[in-house]
């Protein structure tokens, strides 16, 4: 039943390299963009992300009904012309809440990606550049932190801080999310600091700060961007977990995780109350991960499909 193995072994070797044109001068970023736009799955991801951004912005000024308003129609009302996604257990319009939830998800996703990237990049640069005891301390911190289930840390932090404001949720998720970024940047820095161009910059008297920000960081930017892209869906998922457990954005806020939690007890009665936010969450995460995968493949030519 096995097809002749030679078929796929040899064909691939011949076709793979022929797509590369020799002698054409394109910048890394232009080349990456071309690879990204030829990846349909990544483009689908990008389209969803743009749509989501638009919805999130619009929701700040206009939603069909107020996201918090109860008793707009029959409770557990199914989809209709006035309410495309139906109504929830207290008669709120699910479409409006879904729109508001997009803003929360994106705020948490982008905020966390930004904050945890800053922490991770700073610690990674320090550990990789100075090595010695600095590296030992930071690496130990990372190793110990890795051994602690992150969701529990975040839950405990939210309880201790005793506030469920969005900014604190972002901080809570960020203090666990920086680990991979720090590891990545540390590894990149360790390799880059030995390179000739860093040596050259050092020899003309560039200070450490200049070496780190002007020479090492820009050269590690590709993997950093990819890693930061993956942080966004991870943070959105985390916020959903928190909201689902009742520790996310406080009740009237239309967080997708909270909407799922409020609806799942009536799953059999009115599945749409739960399934609509659940699918919104899943599609968002699929899109972001697809875009991240596309970006990774585009920025790292060795990762050819």
């Amino acid at each position: 039943m096995a097809t002749a193995p030679s078929d796929y072994v040899f064909q691939d070797e011949f076709t793979a390299d022929s797509t590369y044109e020799v002698g054409e001068a394109v910048s890394l970023w232009k080349d990456a963009w071309r690879r990204l736009t030829s990846n349909y799955f990544a483009l689908f991801g990008l389209a969803v992300i743009v749509l989501l951004l638009l919805v999130a912005i619009v929701s700040q000024f206009w939603t069909p009904y107020p996201t918090w308003k109860q008793g707009i129609g029959p409770t557990y009302g199914g989809p209709s012309a006035a309410h495309p996604f139906g109504l929830d257990q207290v008669g709120r319009d699910i479409l409006s809440r879904l729109m508001g939830g997009a803003a929360i998800a994106l705020a948490v996703g982008l905020g966390t990606a930004l904050l945890s990237s800053v922490i991770g990049i700073a610690l990674g640069l320090l550990a990789g550049f100075y090595r010695g005891w600095v590296d030992t301390m930071i690496s130990l911190l990372i190793n110990v932190w890795y051994g602690i289930p992150d969701l529990l840390v975040v839950m405990l932090f939210v309880v201790i801080i005793n506030s469920r404001e969005l900014k604190w949720i972002i901080v809570a998720i960020s203090i666990t999310a920086w680990l991979n970024m720090a590891r990545l940047v540390r590894g990149q820095t360790l390799a880059l600091r030995e390179r000739e161009f860093v040596e050259a910059a050092r020899s003309i008297g560039t200070r450490d700060v200049g070496l780190l920000t002007r020479h090492i960081l820009p050269n590690a930017l590709g993997p950093i961007i990819v890693q930061a892209t993956y942080l966004i869906p991870a943070a959105i998922l985390f916020e959903a977990f928190l909201s689902f457990l009742g520790l996310g954005a406080p009740p009237p806020e239309p967080s997708w995780g909270a909407m799922c939690a409020e609806g799942y007890k009536s799953l059999q009665l009115a599945a749409h109350v739960t399934l609509v936010p659940a699918f919104a969450l899943a599609i968002t995460l699929i899109a972001l991960n697809a875009f991240g995968d596309g970006l990774r493949d585009a920025l790292d030519p060795r990762m050819r499909r």
Binding site: F244, L275, A278, A282, D293
Partner: peptide, 14 residues
């Protein structure tokens, strides 16, 4: 694999 990877476990559970 791609879809499942982005599926929160409670959505799968539902």
């Amino acid at each position: 694999a791609t879809v499942g990877y982005s599926m929160p476990n409670f959505v799968t559970a539902f």
